Simulated scan of single mutants.
Amino acid sequence: MAEHEPVTSPDQHKPGHPRAARAGAVVVALLLLSLIFENREGHVSEIWLVGGAALLLLALVGDWVLRRHGLR
């Protein structure tokens, strides 16, 4: 069965569309931030929500900087 599969290099197996992944990360970050306004008593979950959204946005900024300088 393996003899019928074409030989390809690892860079030809890139997953998904990068633009869709970046848009999805922005949407998820906004959804995380929108959960802050849910009715709850403690503030620990708010810290995690803001931290997760900040981490996603930091990754997007890092990706933008690397793409701008051609260092994908």
Rank of each mutant, 00 (worst) to 15 (best):
L49R: 15
G42K: 10
P15Q: 11
R22W: 13
E46V: 10
V7N: 01
H13L: 15
V50P: 01
V27R: 01
D11I: 12
D63V: 06
P18G: 00
A21R: 11
H17Y: 02
R19I: 06
S45N: 09
N39P: 10
A25L: 07
H13V: 11
A59E: 09
A59M: 09
Q12D: 11
V28P: 00
E3G: 12
S34K: 03
G70A: 07
E3N: 09
H13W: 14
E5R: 07
T8N: 07
P10I: 02
S34V: 10
P10F: 02
L60G: 07
S45A: 14
L58T: 15
G62C: 08
E3C: 04
V50G: 09
G70T: 04
K14L: 05
W64N: 01
E41T: 04
H69W: 10
A53D: 03
A59Y: 11
L35W: 12
V7R: 10
L60R: 10
V50L: 12
L56E: 05
G24N: 00
P10C: 01
G42F: 06
E5W: 05
R40C: 03
L58C: 14
E46A: 14
A25T: 05
P6E: 04
E5M: 05
E41R: 03
A54T: 15
R40I: 10
L60H: 05
E5N: 07
V44H: 14
G42R: 06
S45H: 12
L60Y: 07
K14G: 01
L49T: 06
L30W: 07
V61H: 06
P15G: 00
R22C: 09
L31D: 00
F37E: 03
W48V: 15
I47H: 11
S9M: 04
V7L: 12
Q12V: 03
H69K: 14
V50E: 02
A20N: 13
R68T: 03
N39H: 14
F37C: 02
L33Y: 02
P18H: 10
G24W: 00
H13S: 12
R72Q: 15
I36C: 04
G42Y: 04
H4K: 08
R72P: 08
F37A: 13
